[in-house]
Design a protein around this nucleic acid. Structure first.
Lengths: 340, 340
DNA sequence: CGGCTCGACTGAAAGGTTTCAAGTCAAACA
DNA sequence: TGTTTGACTTGAAACCTTTCAGTCGAGCCG
């Protein structure tokens, strides 16, 4: 059905009766070529179905006009929103963005990093499986611009993050202001940096208010099922000892908790007020719309793209920056005293 | 801080005191090289921080060991699950998978397709903005393997889809069996092929049962907000004329509908039973867990990957296949007569 | 009319890898 | 001792594009 060996510029040149250099000029500096020749070459190109060989081009020319985001979990709405922000940044700079899903696998992440470096991508954005991975430093030391996303970097690397301590503070301050004193924190496992910071923020709020009491309910993961289990644990407590509010480390936990509370006949927020984290699309679509701490996801992405482009532009004497954004509390029915 | 001009195999060869060919052999056919030489070369490689130039390699060698999925909307959980399936298929074949998010933009899709073809990717998987796009045919005619995902292809192209007529049939048959007669279909806009097919399936079920009645409630989009609006329209009807069940074209609509019903004080499934479509993660996490038509998303992905690899292997005399999978009904509380 | 400028085009080098025919050399063999 | 074998290694071609110093001819000025 089709010729399978792709025609090259040589073929095109022969067909149009010009030299190789002229074909290149038609493609790259059309102004230098006379009208007649140009149209003859263009005709040859379409007739032959010629497609530029990007490898050869890059080999000669140097850079690839391509960015890549190695993302921890492409199924997580948080990261897809971040990626959308990057897409905008890349578009604005005329670069293409490839998404590479490590899916929490260190092995896959390593394979992607190797490939991307070999392809000489213009820059790599990454939410790493392990922020301390020495491969990332090695990569950067060899000259590929790298920006950490949603993970803090040391002084030798650019990063964009959101202030999780502040997020925890906002959530708990809001609960204290709406009259709650016995507050549960639902989240885990504890080694996760984000979780630790959000707890620290919660405690800071309590200390500042000089009132309130925080119980930590550790979970094994940050998903809906664990939220449901936490709901059972809370509902099982005698009403007198039960917290009147829960601050969940992410919205998935909060949704699971909410579902189980409703299922067990408790009222939200009447019997338990709930605050989530991330403000995912489904937080506002829940049966009781969820109060949640929102992170500037798009902004995170566009900023990361800008940083990596700057690093690519500046070369080795780039000033690394660690940017921290502020989260924002979105109040909805799950913490309103009188839900409509 | 770092040397910025990447060392090449030539540099490595000089450093190790061997010829270029030997360095290549160390990299590609280590068995041919003596132990002593090999370790000397490997040492030079690490000392210099040498990284293979994939462009040069590909220029000489031909193919790129890379697959790409041009996805319609990376924020949609349905597609990310499909992409996960592809990832598995690609891993199994030792290929890397790049995700390219067109985000419903024909322009961006075109840009990605051009770039991927120029990069000589091994194959392209695509859920296109417009299935009839002539660019896709042109691309394929020039020799890049292409598989359509979740969009049916004609005989000249491979595709993987799910039987939406069957899905509609399953949903409505279930509603009929649980005693419902007045059923609303919520979905739109009507031009969308998937929506049309699901309605057709619903009508087929009614025709076969010889009972029941379907009202189509057209929506402007397939999102949560439209689901809420549909809820208002349904709740506004006098109880006698109001359908007792709703079949929604996707889960987002169903969740919006559910949320509004609960908000307006109606019981689900008591006053209105609800069936969604896609069985996204959040369908089972809803306050009333949602009955939904589940599609084999992972399988769709792995199969698509296999097809594109087969096409790449077979070359021009590849037999194109259009695979259709069956959906499955997942029954949960939103249609159970006595919810727990 | 000689010398110039200018526009249009050419030819060859360069870029980093893979591949393969050809070369080297020591050990084994006759 | 001369030959063969086999294990290693080498050198150069090929892949396709971009770039740049030139070439060529036409038109212009003096």
């Amino acid at each position: 059905m089709t010729t399978n060996d792709a025609p090259s510029m040589k073929t095109v040149a022969a067909r149009a009766g010009v030299s190789l250099g002229t074909v290149s000029n038609v493609l790259n500096r059309p102004g230098l070529v006379s009208e007649a020749t140009r149209s003859r070459v263009l005709a040859a190109i379409t007739e032959l179905g010629f497609v530029r060989n990007e490898s050869a081009r890059q080999l000669r020319g140097g850079s690839s006009r391509t960015l890549a985001y190695v993302v921890l979990d492409a199924s997580n709405p948080f990261f897809t929103d971040v990626a959308n922000g990057m897409q905008q940044g890349a578009d604005a700079a005329g670069l293409a963005l490839f998404l590479c899903n490590s899916g929490q696998s260190g092995e896959r992440q390593a394979a992607y990093l190797d490939l991307l470096e070999q392809q000489r991508v213009e820059g790599i954005l990454i939410t790493p499986v392990d922020a301390a991975d020495p491969r990332i430093d090695a990569l950067a030391a060899r000259g590929t611009p790298v920006v950490l996303v949603d993970r803090a970097a040391g002084p030798g690397r650019c990063s964009v993050t959101v202030d999780d301590v502040l997020g925890g503070d906002l959530a708990v301050t809001h609960l204290l202001e709406t009259g709650h004193r016995k507050i549960a924190f639902v989240g885990g496992p504890l080694p996760i940096g984000q979780v630790v910071d959000r707890i620290a923020g919660a405690e800071r709020a309590i200390a500042r208010a000089g009132a309130g009491e925080l119980t930590v309910l550790e979970t094994a993961a940050l998903n809906v099922a664990e939220g449901r289990r936490a709901g059972e644990r809370l509902a099982g407590l005698p009403a007198a000892r039960r917290p009147t509010a829960a601050f969940c480390a992410n919205d998935l936990l909060a949704l699971g908790l909410l579902q189980r509370m409703v299922g067990l006949g408790l009222r939200v927020p009447g019997d338990l007020a709930i605050v989530g984290y991330d403000d995912i699309e489904f937080a506002k679509a829940a049966a009781v719309p969820l109060t949640s701490v929102s992170q500037p996801r798009q902004l995170l992405g566009t900023t990361a793209a800008e940083l990596v482009l700057a690093e690519s532009r500046d070369g080795p004497d780039h000033q690394h920056r660690q940017l921290v954004f502020d989260p924002e509390l979105i109040v909805r029915a799950s913490t309103r005293l009188r839900p409509t």
